[in-house]
Simulated assay, not measured.
Amino acid sequence: MFPGDTADAEDCWATILAILARDPPKNVLGVLAAGPLEDLIHHVGPEFIDRIELQARKDPAFRHLLGGVWASSTPDIWVRVEAARGTTW
């Protein structure tokens, strides 16, 4: 889905943020976290971790969304994701 395709990753990031901004129901948040956001972190975590950390700092809804992501990417990226999300769901 993303390896080597920066445009897809950018589209995914923009879509995640757009959906989250609409204050979707809990079941949609679960799918958003366990699907697109988890895939983004897994495939392009090193390229997006700075943005993920920044978004988590300024947006409590995004920080909460990170709580629905399972461990993925490299260990050093995953440590940063855990720090960015704080407490989990």
Rank of each mutant, 00 (worst) to 15 (best):
F2L: 15
P3A: 11
G4P: 01
D5A: 11
D5E: 11
T6C: 00
D8P: 00
A9M: 08
A9V: 05
E10H: 09
E10P: 03
E10T: 11
D11S: 14
W13S: 07
A14Y: 01
A14L: 08
T15R: 12
L17H: 02
L17Y: 03
I19K: 10
I19Q: 09
I19C: 12
L20G: 02
A21E: 13
A21M: 06
R22C: 06
R22F: 00
R22G: 05
R22W: 01
D23H: 11
P24N: 05
P24A: 03
P24H: 01
K26A: 15
K26G: 04
N27A: 13
N27Y: 11
V28M: 10
V28Q: 09
V28K: 06
L29W: 01
L29E: 12
L29P: 02
L29Y: 01
G30W: 10
G30N: 14
G30T: 05
L32P: 12
A33W: 12
A33I: 11
A34G: 13
A34N: 09
G35D: 14
G35E: 11
P36H: 09
P36N: 14
E38D: 06
E38H: 07
E38V: 05
D39P: 00
D39C: 07
L40G: 10
L40R: 07
L40Q: 08
H42M: 05
H42F: 08
H43A: 03
V44W: 00
G45F: 02
G45D: 03
P46H: 02
P46R: 02
E47P: 00
I49P: 00
I49L: 01
R51L: 14
R51F: 06
I52A: 06
I52N: 06
E53K: 08
E53R: 09
E53W: 06
Q55V: 01
R57S: 13
R57N: 14
K58W: 00
K58L: 10
K58G: 08
K58H: 13
K58E: 13
D59K: 07
P60N: 12
F62S: 12
F62I: 10
F62E: 13
R63K: 14
H64P: 00
H64R: 13
H64V: 07
H64Y: 11
L65R: 04
L65K: 05
G67F: 13
V69T: 03
W70R: 14
A71L: 04
A71K: 14
S72C: 15
S72H: 10
S73L: 02
T74M: 04
T74P: 00
P75H: 07
D76I: 01
I77F: 05
I77L: 05
I77Q: 07
W78P: 04
V79W: 00
E82F: 09
E82C: 15
E82D: 14
E82K: 15
A83K: 11
A83M: 03
A84E: 05
R85Y: 04
R85W: 04
R85V: 09
G86S: 08
G86T: 11
G86L: 08
G86N: 07
G86F: 07
G86K: 04
T88E: 14
W89A: 02
W89E: 07
W89S: 03
